[in-house]
C-alpha cells in the first residue's frame, strides 16, 4: 500500500521529537519523510520532497509557517500554534489549511484531524481518477459543461469566464449569492466532482492549451490559468496528468515533431 508522505516543521525540538515519536504514523498510513525547524529549510524540504501533508507551527525562524505554505506546492496542511489570533486563522483558511490546532496540542485531537484529512484525500483521489481514467495525455480532462441545474451551470459559466483570476469556492458562492456549503453539495450532486477539483481540472485543461505556445514559460502559464504560484501549478498538474508540466511539454513537442516527419 502506498503511504502518504508527511513533513513536520516545528522550531521547538522537544515538540518536534514528540510529534515524530509519539504519533503512530504507520498505523494511520502515513510516513514522515522529513522534518525541519525553520521556515526557509522547511520550504526547501517541501519543494524537494513534495509531501502530501505538511504539519507546521506558525511562528518559525526565517519565515513564518503561513508564508512558507504559500510558496510551496502543498495541498494539505495542519497548523499547530500557541496563537489563537483571528488574523492568523483567517490567513490559514485562505491558504486552504485543513485544520488549526492550539497548543498544548491534545494528541487525540491531532489523531482525529489526521484521520479526517486522510479521508478527504481519498475522496479527492477518487475524483481525479474519475477525471483522468482512460484519457490520452494530449486530450486534457473531460469535464461536464452543462448539467441541467441552473445554479451549477451558472457556477460552471463563472469558472469559464473567471478561471484566470484567483477564484475559489468562496468567490463563486458570493457571486451566485448562495452559501459555500450549498454550492459544494449541489455541485457534487450534479457533476459527481468536488467543486475545487473541477476548477483545478479546468485550469489544467487551459494550461494544456497554452502549452502549445512555446513562447510562454511554465510560470506565465500558471499565472494565466489562475494558479497562485508555479509550485502549486506543478503539484496539481502532476496530480491530474501523472507527470510534471515541463516533462509533459517536452514529450508533446517530441511527439508533434515526430508526427511532422
Amino acid at each position: 500500500m502506498t503511504r502518504h508522505t508527511i513533513v513536520l516543521v516545528e522550531d521547538e525540538l522537544l515538540t518536534l521529537r514528540e510529534l515524530e515519536t509519539t504519533i503512530d504514523w504507520t498505523q494511520l498510513g502515513l510516513q514522515v519523510v522529513g522534518t525541519a525547524s525553520d521556515g526557509i529549510s522547511g520550504e526547501a524540504l517541501i519543494k524537494s520532497l513534495e509531501p502530501d501533508i505538511v504539519i507546521t507551527d506558525i511562528r518559525l525562524p526565517g519565515q513564518d509557517g503561513l508564508s512558507m505554505l504559500a510558496q510551496c506546492p502543498v495541498n494539505h496542511a495542519i497548523i499547530l500554534s500557541g496563537h489563537s489570533d483571528f488574523s492568523y486563522m483567517q490567513q490559514a483558511i485562505r491558504l486552504g489549511v485543513f485544520d488549526y490546532l492550539l497548543k498544548p496540542v491534545d494528541n487525540n485531537d491531532l489523531h482525529q484531524s489526521l484521520e479526517k484529512l486522510l479521508n478527504h484525500i481519498k475522496e479527492e483521489e477518487v475524483d481525479v481518477e474519475k477525471l483522468t481514467k482512460g484519457k490520452m495525455i494530449e486530450e486534457g480532462l473531460e469535464l461536464p459543461q452543462s448539467v441541467g441545474n441552473y445554479i451549477v451551470d451558472a457556477a460552471i459559466e463563472f469558472i469559464r469566464t473567471s478561471y484566470a483570476k484567483q477564484i475559489g469556492l468562496q468567490e463563486t458562492a458570493e457571486y451566485l449569492n448562495i452559501s459555500e456549503s450549498h454550492l459544494c453539495r449541489l455541485f457534487k450532486e450534479y457533476t459527481q466532482i468536488n467543486f475545487l477539483q473541477y476548477i483545478s481540472a479546468w485550469r489544467i485543461n487551459k494550461a494544456i492549451e497554452l502549452m502549445g505556445n512555446p513562447s510562454l514559460s511554465i510560470q506565465a502559464i500558471a499565472l494565466n490559468c489562475g494558479f497562485p504560484n508555479p509550485g502549486y501549478f506543478a503539484k496539481i498538474f502532476k496530480k491530474f496528468m501523472g507527470i510534471s508540466p515541463s516533462k509533459y511539454r517536452n514529450e508533446r513537442n517530441y511527439s508533434n515533431e515526430s508526427s511532422m516527419d
Binding site: E12, L14, T15, R17, E18, T21, T22, G82, K103, P104
Partner: peptide, 17 residues
C-alpha cells in the same frame, strides 16, 4: 499567554517522551 501555552506544550512533549 503564548509563553504560558508554549511552555505547557513543552511540558506536555516532555511528559509524552
Amino acid at each position: 499567554p503564548h509563553f504560558l501555552f508554549n511552555t505547557l506544550n513543552t511540558v506536555k512533549a516532555l511528559a509524552s517522551l
